[in-house]
Measured scan of single mutants.
Amino acid sequence: GQVNVNNTTYTFPTPKLAKEFAQKAAKKYNLTVHVSGNTVTVK
């Protein structure tokens, strides 16, 4: 799974890890998680 945070893309071996990372990043920066297919964007 891929996660985009502040124009930086992070790649994870599983969608589960990507989702967990996205949720932590969203909480940390007070942003929202947007899911589109296999790509998760935090903005």
Rank of each mutant, 00 (worst) to 15 (best):
K16A: 13
H34N: 07
H34Y: 14
K27T: 08
E20K: 13
T41A: 04
V3E: 11
F12K: 00
T8G: 07
V35N: 02
L17Q: 10
K27V: 07
V33I: 07
V35T: 04
N4R: 09
A26G: 05
V5S: 12
G1R: 07
K16R: 10
H34G: 04
S36W: 09
T11G: 02
T11F: 09
V40G: 00
Y29W: 13
N6M: 14
P15L: 12
L17I: 07
T11A: 05
T8V: 14
K28H: 09
Y10S: 01
P13K: 13
P15N: 11
K27N: 07
N4Q: 12
L17V: 04
V35F: 03
V33K: 00
N7H: 15
H34P: 01
F12S: 01
Y10R: 03
N7Q: 15
K27S: 09
F12Q: 01
N30V: 03
K16H: 09
N30T: 04
K27D: 07
V35H: 03
K28L: 14
Q23K: 14
H34V: 14
Q2F: 11
G1L: 12
N6Q: 13
V3S: 12
Y10M: 04
V42Q: 01
F12N: 00
Q2Y: 10
Q23V: 12
L31N: 03
F21Q: 01
G37K: 04
N30L: 06
V33M: 05
F12I: 01
L31A: 08
T32Q: 10
A18N: 00
A22R: 02
K43S: 14
K16W: 08
A18G: 01
K28D: 07
P13T: 08
Y10D: 00
E20G: 05
G1N: 11
T11P: 02
N38Y: 04
V40H: 01
K27H: 07
H34E: 13
V42A: 02
K24H: 10
T39F: 05
K16T: 08
T41N: 04
F21L: 01
Q23T: 10
Q2T: 12
Q2L: 11
T8C: 15
Q23H: 09
T39S: 06
K24R: 14
N4G: 12
N30P: 03
V40S: 01
A26D: 03
V42P: 01
V5W: 14
V3G: 12
F21K: 01
N7W: 15
T9W: 06
V40K: 00
G1P: 13
T8N: 08
K27G: 06
A26I: 11
G37H: 04
F21R: 01
K28P: 01
A22V: 02
E20M: 14
A22Q: 02
G37I: 03
T11Y: 13
P15R: 09
Q23E: 13
Q23Y: 13
N7V: 15
K43W: 15
T8L: 12
N38S: 08
V40Y: 04
T8H: 15
T9N: 04
K19Y: 13
T41Y: 09
N7T: 15
V5K: 12
N6D: 09
G1C: 15
G1T: 12
K28Y: 14
T41D: 03
T11R: 08
A25S: 04
L31Y: 06
H34M: 13
T11H: 10
T9D: 03
T8M: 12
F12L: 03
T14H: 04
T32E: 11
F21I: 02
V35K: 02
F12H: 01
V42D: 00
A25N: 03
N4K: 10
